[in-house]
Amino acid sequence: MSEIENQSAEFIANFRRVREEISKVIVGNEPIVEGVLICLIANGHALLEGVPGLGKTLLVRTLSQALDLSFSRVQFTPDLMPADITGTNILIEGVGGQKEFKFQPGPVFAHIVLADEINRATPKTQSAMLEAMQEHGVTVAGISHRLLEPFIVLATQNPIEMEGTYPLPEAQLDRFLFKLLVKSPTFEDLCAIVDRTTGSPAEAILPVLDGPSILKMRALAREVPMSPSVREFAIKLVLGTQPDSEFAPPEVKQFVRYGSSPRGAQAVVVAAKIRALLFGRYNVAVEDIEQVAAPALRHRMILNFEGEADGISADILVEAILKRGNSDSELKIPV
């Protein structure tokens, strides 16, 4: 067995272990769990959207338990201030009576940060996360402070428009690798949830993966080669979200105001590489791109008024773009 094979096998085993630990608590929602783990390995952040009570917060908390990493939770409220997240300098009196300012790190200084109900905070507070998410650092009183690695923000938001919520700005949304839609459990899943939560206490979650292993997995995932034709497919897919592009299907031209930024392409490719490894392949397939396209692009397309009015979902548009991309790349050999 070659070294790469060993590393790949270890990668898959680590991933499975974490997933299995999470599945001790979380019933169903495999794509969400998988998406969150992909974001962790891809050095990205995830936005979980779903109605209250679907286990979004529980998922993140369970993940933090399964990983041997620090965890902090920030409950976003309208009166939350940026300093409440990033931390601030406070005046401290020393032993000798001398006073000095000392930086008090905020909840963002953790490996896993749960930004619960992120759309309840004001845009000013939401923006406090921008630097942390992109640069993995915060600047307070002119001094930059590095965050812990691996660092991941898992934000949750309620899709129902309510009083006192502030939709995330485009710049903020763009910093999330995936936007994962948490759906209501199926009949079987709900039965299992009821059984688990109303009976004896749940099995304890053990940490199965540490920070260095995650960093190693990140490095390995980036090594996965991608053939030019698959890369071309991914690029065309991302360009297809832009209404002015030649690769855009008619639906995108009709309903989209702004398409994905280059971050979208990066997200698609990195996520596809991780997925390829997870499936035991040493190359990225078109199928990997197709599978990660919706969570990576759905929050990067801004619909126009017509799209909003018609209730067009971004997933339908991604599907249309994929259909167009597949027909373009299809070989015209009738055998």
């Binding site: 070659s2 790469i4 996965v224 080669p225 392949r281 040493y282 190359n283 990225v284 397939a285 199928e287």
Partner: peptide
């Protein structure tokens, strides 16, 4: 899943021919 076409294309590109992953 694009195993054969990737092998052909990556082999022809040759830039990462020595990488362990490509091999």
């Amino acid at each position: 899943k694009e195993r054969f076409s990737s092998a052909l294309e990556l082999n022809a590109a040759g830039s990462d021919a020595n990488s362990a992953f490509l091999a």
